[in-house]
Computed example of a mutant assay.
Amino acid sequence: MTDHKTGTREEWLAARLELLESEKALTRRSDELARKRQELPWVRIDKEYRFATDEGTASLADLFGGRSQLLVYHFMFGPDFGAGCPSCSAIADGFDGSVVHLAHHDVTLCAVSRAPLAKLQAYKRRMGWTFPWASSFGGDFNHDFGTSITEEQQRSGVVEYNFRSMDVTPTPEPGDSPIADIAAALGTDAATYRRELPGMSAFALEDGVVHHTYSAYARGLDGLWGMYQWLDRAPRGRNETGIWWRRHDEYDNRPEPDSRSCCGS
């Protein structure tokens, strides 16, 4: 039997109309935030970044694909990983459906990771994805845009992530911790796994010059998780106490996840 309150249709409608006002206020606030994002000053990028793509070596300007706007998802896939991060994979499952629509609205959506291109291509085939995915292997792109840290930075203890200081001092992980489990599944260790971080960045190309316009990290990526937008409207909401999701080809015959979480806030 449900432990949630029940009521009549009339009671539900009254409560729903009250909630509707709050939803409308949130929508108006979200529209306002979108305008403020677009009003951020653009920062010219003069540094030469090089990427490996399916079409060959590319510059940052090349990643625009002839369009004037570029959205980059910083996918957690380090050079030493055997597969992509499962959380990033859950987000990326929604990319293919959006890429074609964005392309017809002068926007290119592309993932970028530090792993070599061959690893990205193999994983992309496994997942059945078709969206553009570039390798920044050997370059500074992910470091410069706040989604990768070096071993030296990790040893130093504190880095800037999500526009604030974050302690990344390596600490021993219990052998059965979520981080250790994920790292082991990627064929690496917890410290190496933690050197990659999620994020997204936006760029504009104008008169042949690339500008950085926006970046977001951590919970700033919530809106990109399509499954969470649905869960927030489900009867029990997110209803989670830990990491429950898997890569989409790993759900069959999988044990139930435990209640521990590695997610940041």
Rank of each mutant, 00 (worst) to 15 (best):
K5G: 08
T6I: 06
E10K: 15
A14I: 06
A14N: 04
L20H: 07
S22Y: 07
E23K: 13
A25Q: 14
E32D: 13
R35W: 01
E39N: 00
I45Q: 09
K47R: 12
K47H: 15
Y49S: 00
F51D: 00
T53H: 08
S59V: 04
L63R: 09
F64L: 07
G65R: 04
G66M: 09
S68N: 14
S68I: 02
F81A: 10
P86Y: 10
P86C: 12
S89K: 01
S89Q: 12
A90R: 12
S98K: 13
H101R: 09
H104L: 00
V112R: 06
A115Q: 03
A118T: 07
A122M: 09
R125P: 00
R125W: 02
G128E: 07
W129E: 05
A134L: 11
S136G: 15
F137E: 15
G138M: 03
D140P: 04
H143G: 01
F145I: 12
G146S: 12
I149W: 02
T150A: 01
Q154H: 07
V158H: 09
F163D: 14
D167W: 03
T169E: 06
P170M: 11
G175E: 12
D176Y: 03
D176R: 04
S177Q: 01
P178F: 12
A180M: 02
D181P: 00
I182K: 03
I182R: 10
A184K: 09
A185Q: 10
A185E: 08
A185H: 06
T188W: 05
T188I: 04
A190Q: 01
P198I: 00
G199A: 05
E206I: 09
E206N: 11
D207H: 12
G208T: 06
V209M: 08
S215F: 03
R219G: 02
W225F: 15
G226S: 10
L231I: 03
D232M: 05
R233N: 10
P235V: 10
P235K: 06
R236V: 05
G237K: 00
R238D: 01
D249N: 14
D249A: 11
Y251P: 06
R254S: 14
P255E: 12
P257S: 11
G264Q: 11
